[in-house]
């Protein structure tokens, strides 16, 4: 039940990164711009080859795993929908790795993302928040063991951010592994079970959010003096 990276190196992007992620919780990958967050996520998803190191899923090398597409669901940073297809058509794309037309997982994903009634609407015509739900429903329809999402909260207003995080938490509680690249450190602090902090391609922290995102660490990695306000689960970050 482990998605593990061993000594990953990729010229200019990742330097000897190792980690072992467990299912059943949310792991956030944080770091300044250019730290290698998206690269690490793509390597974990099997979409980017490294110069050295390997990724394993339950001990098996991802590169040699035929079931990779079924087990890992990937949501990119800048999602696109090229044609004026319906919401249902987009969600059904999640079944491609299974090579079937099973309707039950598609219906379940539509229900989980509160998209009932949207099935015949054109996905391109939806708002950003609605599209984010449709695209996450596409991932869920594939019934992956892991959800790997790159900045899924970017471009969403605070209401939609909370709703999407709520959905992802439910998926994690249902036993899936959820790995998110997050720029919003407060989101990571309040909702992640574990945080990986990258700085210039190096993994500088791999711990619970309180430890990984301490004010000292933020000063060291982001170069900004800050302090956390509020109580656990409802923290806000303020400039010191």
């Amino acid at each position: 039940m482990t998605l593990a990276a061993q000594n990953l190196s990729l010229a200019g992007r990742l330097k000897n990164v190792s980690c072992a992620l467990e299912k059943g919780g949310i792991t956030a990958i944080c770091g300044p711009n250019g730290a290698g967050k998206s690269s690490l996520l793509q390597v974990l998803a099997g979409l980017l080859e490294t110069d050295a190191g390997q990724v394993t899923l339950d001990g098996e090398s991802l590169a040699a795993l035929d079931s990779r597409a079924k087990r890992l669901g990937y949501l990119p940073q800048a999602p696109e929908i090229a044609w004026d297809v319906t919401v249902r058509s987009v969600v059904e794309l999640g079944r491609i790795p299974h090579r079937d037309a099973a309707t039950a997982p598609v219906e379940a994903a539509i229900a989980a993302m509160d998209l009932a009634g949207y099935e015949t609407r054109r996905a391109q015509a939806l708002s950003g928040g609605e599209q984010a739900r449709v695209l996450l429903a596409r991932v869920l329809a594939g019934e992956p063991e892991w959800i790997l999402a790159d900045e899924p909260l970017a471009a969403l207003d605070i209401g939609h951010q909370q709703a999407l995080v709520g959905h992802l938490k439910r998926e994690a509680r249902a036993g899936r592994g959820v790995v998110l690249v997050l720029h919003d450190l407060a989101m990571a602090m309040n909702h992640a079970d574990r945080v990986l902090v990258l700085d210039e391609g190096r993994l500088v922290a791999d711990a619970g959010p309180t430890e990984a995102l301490s004010s000292e660490r933020i000063a060291e990695v982001w170069g900004v003096e800050t302090r956390w306000l509020g109580e656990e689960g409802a923290r806000a970050l303020a400039h010191a």
């Binding site: 979409l47 597409a69 079924k70 987009v90 794309l93 491609i96 790795p97």
Partner: peptide, 16 residues
């Protein structure tokens, strides 16, 4: 081609 509707990275993640 259907998978490419959501872009090349998603198509590859779907096993294309």
């Amino acid at each position: 081609l259907d998978a490419l509707t959501l872009g090349e990275p998603v198509a590859r993640s779907l096993g294309i």
